[in-house]
């Protein structure tokens, strides 16, 4: 084959290159640039090498925030994914109730993050909130502004309320895509309800479950607005998650260098964990006996 060279082709890709540069490459390079400097002012900056990375990785508070963040994200996945599958399995497959159920489920997804925080702040208040009064009425001492475990559980419950619907909708779509003939074949084989779930529904949902797990992991790992509005990160630092920590460091204290290094580590961790999830789920069910 003869190779043809079109000099004008460069012009055609130029707009995309320009947009991607401004939206992704330039900001990323800026962050990398900041992360290796100590900045006092525009004209007053010094190259410090890997100093900030060392400091961030060695900081016990940040390590604590990372641990909290991982614990939180895994708790979110451990609750929302199985719950999502369970609810999706219980949903009607056809008939007038389908749209009713779908709308009810989609409602929490339509609420903005900070509004969710505000709703739960009032809902869970021990003096006037329905949930707070209810729990205390059961004889359990509950106060999410004073007790760190209560605060933690409240943030988790809020996230489950807000985002389980996403997992449900994805699983439901996956279940709806299974042809009826699979269920017939299973009935003819005499397969149990569990076998139908284990060998038909679960493998057929692998694709949507992967999306659900990745989305929920990435989103929960970046959680900011809801706990910020609900608890402000307290009591103490019990619900201070990574993004709130980062915001305080960058915007509150104006420590641009360390904040930039923090951002890069943060970003790489999300990338790495998502990659691991992707590989693990992709290989599940392959090469079994």
């Amino acid at each position: 084959m003869e190779k043809t060279y079109y000099p004008k082709a460069w012009l055609m890709v130029l707009p995309v290159v320009a947009i991607v540069s401004f939206s992704a490459i330039v900001p990323l390079m800026t962050v990398i640039n900041y992360s290796v400097q100590d900045i006092f002012g525009p004209e007053n900056r010094y190259f410090v090498g890997m100093e900030w990375f060392r400091e961030i990785l060695g900081d016990p508070e940040i390590r604590g925030a990372f641990q909290r963040q991982f614990l939180f994200s895994f708790a979110v996945l451990a609750i929302e994914i199985p719950l999502g599958i369970a609810i999706a399995l219980c949903m009607p497959r056809k008939g007038p109730w389908v749209s009713v159920v779908l709308i009810l489920l989609a409602l929490p997804l339509l609420v903005p993050w900070n509004v969710v925080g505000t709703i739960w702040q009032m809902f869970a208040r021990p003096d006037i909130g329905l949930l707070g009064i209810g729990i205390n009425g059961l004889g359990i001492d509950y106060n999410f502004t004073g007790n760190s475990i209560d605060a933690w559980v409240t943030v988790l419950a809020m996230d489950v309320w807000h985002w389980t619907s996403l997992a449900v909708l994805l699983c439901y779509a996956g279940l709806q895509a299974i042809p009826d003939a699979y269920y017939q074949a299973a009935r003819i084989d005499g397969a149990s309800r569990w076998a139908v779930f284990r060998y038909i529904e679960l493998p057929k949902m692998r694709g949507v479950l992967m999306i659900a797990i990745l989305l929920r992991f990435m989103d929960s790992f970046k959680i900011f607005a809801e706990p910020f509005v609900l608890t402000g990160g307290g009591p103490g630092d019990s619900t201070t998650f990574l993004s709130q920590y980062l915001t305080t460091m960058a915007v509150g204290q104006f420590d641009l260098g360390p904040a930039a290094a923090f951002s890069i580590i943060y970003f790489l961790v999300i990338l790495l964990v998502s990659y691991v999830f992707y590989q693990v789920i992709n290989n599940l069910g392959k090469g079994v006996s």
Binding site: P179, A181, Q184, I188, Y199, I200, L202, K204, V288, S289
Partner: peptide
């Protein structure tokens, strides 16, 4: 009874 369908129905995660 045994049945074969239009669609190719097999258990996806089993060999």
């Amino acid at each position: 009874v045994a049945m074969v369908y239009q669609q190719f129905i097999n258990y996806p995660s089993l060999s």
